[in-house]
Design a binder for these strands. Structure first.
Lengths: 144, 144
DNA sequence: ATCACTGCAAACCATTTGCACGGCT
DNA sequence: AGCCGTGCAAATGGTTTGCAGTGAT
């Protein structure tokens, strides 16, 4: 945890930025929440610092994404969800009927991902990957 | 083409709806454009019928999607893109740096898709699938 | 003194909704 | 008559931007 803070600090300083309280709180919120929308992040951050503005959260997330400290994926139709990069990488399976989210290992996609890189030179961004579909339960119940 | 119109007509009537001029134009626009945002669709539709409102386009797309005549995928961060179902199914590779879009055959994902169905009972919606990443050119030029 | 960073409010863009009119069935 | 479908305008949700003040270097 403290090691994370040091790491974040170094990363930001190296690119001419500061690790402000707001930024630290955003990073901690993203790390804690796992899959978090900007709305959820600002809510979490405000538990500690109630005055933090949502536009600061957006600006922070943009910056952190440029620095590759966080990345985002689109799980549903609404807001994107952010997560810290490198930690527990996973691919999402999102049920379009009930909204349930399962995670699978990126390893399982190693096959095609490797082929695409070899044949087309296209490198898939695993952090951003989402597979939409229908979960077993919804299929069994005939939900759509 | 005329066969398509008949098919659409039948499908709509079967579910208690009508194939209005607006709906036909939306369907034709989606079929013609291939990957179209609601904005692009309304623009195309207005070439023929200038008074069509964008909310009609949204409502029409929702209806057509329920009837499974069209489906949508999220290519970029912005608006979703619609396409007619069943025709030329494909999976998109979207470059996050330059925005270029390539298409690959869904067959190439048959492996994991089959595994996920067998092991988890999760059925992937191929029409909705997008793989984000970096294309060969952007990687070569070091773009991000 | 300069420049990064933030809060606030307004602007923006995509999408949705309420309502009243018009036209099928 | 009843109901589906539409245009219009207002509301909404998510995100971005301009600006002025504050604090770090």
């Amino acid at each position: 945890m403290a090691a994370d803070v040091d790491n974040w600090h170094t990363r930001l300083r190296a690119s001419g930025h500061r690790l402000t309280p707001q930024r630290q709180l955003v990073l901690e919120a993203v790390a804690k929440l796992g899959h978090a929308t900007p709305e959820a992040i600002v809510h979490e951050v405000r538990q500690t610092a109630s005055a933090v503005n949502i536009s600061t959260v957006y600006r922070t997330l943009d910056l952190l994404e440029e620095l590759e400290l966080v990345s985002h994926a689109h799980l549903g139709h609404g807001a994107p969800t952010y997560h810290v990069t490198g930690v527990d990488p996973h691919v999402h399976l999102v049920c379009g009927a009930c909204g349930a989210i399962q995670e699978i290992s990126p390893e399982r996609l190693a096959g095609i991902v490797g082929e695409l890189r070899a044949e087309l030179g296209f490198v898939v961004d695993m952090d951003h990957l989402t597979l939409a579909g229908r979960c077993a339960e919804c299929l069994a119940l005939g939900r759509r």
